[in-house]
């Protein structure tokens, strides 16, 4: 038998993967809702866009928190730096995409 410290530790994990199952169900729900919204034409374009984008944002949270251990540290007691780094990443994602649309919106007039 391998020495004790090499035995994978089973801590933190319950016997049934509840977290993953709930995450999966949520992600399915969050896919079906926007699909339904779009296909059934229940909303006018602007609220529809906002609605489906909102679902997408919730989906990110599902992946990050239910699957990716987004806020878990490495056990060293230091902060989970990835939370900060990736949050900055999301911020710049919105800035670059949003600002590019704003900046380039002139071209729709030029065309």
């Amino acid at each position: 038998m391998a020495s004790q410290h090499q035995t994978p530790t089973a801590h933190h994990e319950p016997s049934f993967p509840w977290q993953y199952v709930i995450g999966y169900v949520l992600s399915l729900v969050l896919t079906v809702i926007p699909l339904w919204l779009v296909l059934d034409h229940v909303l006018t374009p602007t609220p529809l866009t906002i609605g489906i984008l909102f679902c997408a944002v919730l989906q990110i949270f599902v992946q990050l928190f239910m699957f990716m251990h987004f806020t878990h540290g490495d056990g060293s007691g230091e902060p989970a730096y990835q939370t900060v780094v990736l949050s900055i990443g999301f911020f710049f994602t919105v800035v670059f995409a949003g600002a590019s649309i704003w900046i380039m919106s002139f071209s729709s007039q030029v065309q």
């Binding site: 710049f92 800035v95 704003w102 919106s105 002139f106």
Partner: peptide, 18 residues
């Protein structure tokens, strides 16, 4: 520093607000 890049192409004419 990430919020200033348009100053390299002000003359593109993106509009007064931009």
């Amino acid at each position: 520093g990430f919020l200033t890049w348009v100053h390299h192409f002000f003359t593109m004419g993106a509009g007064a607000d931009v």
